[in-house]
């Protein structure tokens, strides 16, 4: 028989999981890029990887304290954004897409290759970088919570820090997007020549946007590695597409969209994979093996993205009125 309670409680846990927080923050970064500025960044996985590796390497190889490791990761991400942006932001939007997708893959391959094994741990990745972060935890050891939401002190600590960061960056994004700065940014999305003709340095604004959204991704990367190890295979291009799926689900030019989108995305993923895995176990799907069942969720994600784009292109929080004018 299928254990529905386990499926539902696992799915419910995703609402506040650190992974959900990480994806929400990464999607918020993409909202700045794509939703507000119109920059096609297909390399968000690269920014996330820089957060993961920048933090882990700083701690493991250089013995940096937490704050310094965070600064190193953010600094690396700013440099990465500059390298991507300087040659491409003067060109048409699609060039940035090509360059970012390639650059993120290059980063992942650099982290995977044996050449830098001493630093990156190559394909097997890195672990053992959590002590500094755990030491900052003010919660006394023990188990807290109720029902499915029962965690130990460290797990609560990750969730609290992760979601606090999401809230802080969501508020920052909301503030800047309703300011004159945000007006210029949205103007650039509509027609950058018109904005240029009004005396705004479009190139500089696009660069600021790329850096800012990239840093969101990098901070997301640091949240992402707290409940798991750093493994290069996690930072494939598909990661960027999942983040895009969340963004489109929630609404590209919205603040709540990426956050709620991430929750819905992960609850659904957990529900489907839990259901399919147990259904296979129970013999409901005799044509399918356990391994195939594991892959099925990604197929479902793909189908879901297509359905969203076709039937709800503005996303959950997007403005329907805008849609009337999208060409």
């Amino acid at each position: 028989m299928i254990d529905w309670l386990a499926i539902f409680s696992n799915a419910a846990q995703e609402v506040i999981s650190p992974t959900t927080a990480a994806y929400a923050l990464a999607a918020l970064g993409l909202a700045i890029h794509f939703g507000y500025t119109g920059l096609l960044n297909f390399g968000q996985a690269g920014f996330i990887a820089l957060g993961a590796y920048g933090y882990a390497i700083s701690i493991l190889s250089f013995g940096f304290p937490v704050w310094a490791a965070v600064l190193v990761a953010v600094g690396a991400s700013v440099i990465f954004a500059l390298i991507l942006g300087i040659p491409t932001l003067r060109l048409r939007a699609d060039y940035l897409a090509i360059v970012t997708i390639a650059a993120a893959e290059i980063l992942r391959l650099i982290f995977t290759t044996n050449t830098f094994d001493a630093l990156t741990g190559s394909a097997s990745g890195l672990q053992g970088y959590k002590d500094g972060f755990a030491a900052l935890n003010p919660i006394p050891p023990g188990s807290y919570g109720f029902g499915p939401f029962t965690y130990n002190a460290f797990d609560w600590w990750i969730r609290i820090v992760g979601w606090t960061l999401v809230v802080i960056f969501a508020v920052i994004t909301w503030l800047i997007m309703r300011s004159p700065w945000g007006r210029v940014i949205k103007g650039i999305r509509e027609d950058e020549d018109a904005v240029r003709a009004l005396g705004k340095n479009v190139y500089s604004y696009k660069m600021q946007s790329l850096i800012l959204g990239g840093v969101y991704g990098t901070i997301a990367g640091m949240i992402f590695i707290m409940p798991r190890a750093v493994v290069p295979a996690n930072y494939q291009t598909s990661l960027t597409f999942f983040v895009y799926a969340i963004l489109l689900l929630g609404g590209a030019a919205t603040i709540l969209g990426p956050v709620i989108g991430s929750m819905i995305f992960w609850v659904l993923i957990s529900f489907f994979s839990g259901f399919v895995a147990r259904a296979v176990e129970a013999g409901w799907l005799p044509f399918m093996s356990q391994v195939q069942a594991g892959q099925l969720r990604f197929i479902l994600v793909g189908v879901a993205i297509m359905l969203i784009v076709v039937f709800m292109p503005q996303g959950i929080f997007g403005n329907k009125k805008e849609l009337a004018f999208v060409k």
Binding site: K186, E190, V195, A197, F325
Partner: peptide, 22 residues
Amino acid sequence: KALGLLTVLDNMKLGAKGQSGE
């Protein structure tokens, strides 16, 4: 070149120069 998904008022405000909030 009207900025389609900005309001008419926002289009106008974008034209002002020397905005510290930018």
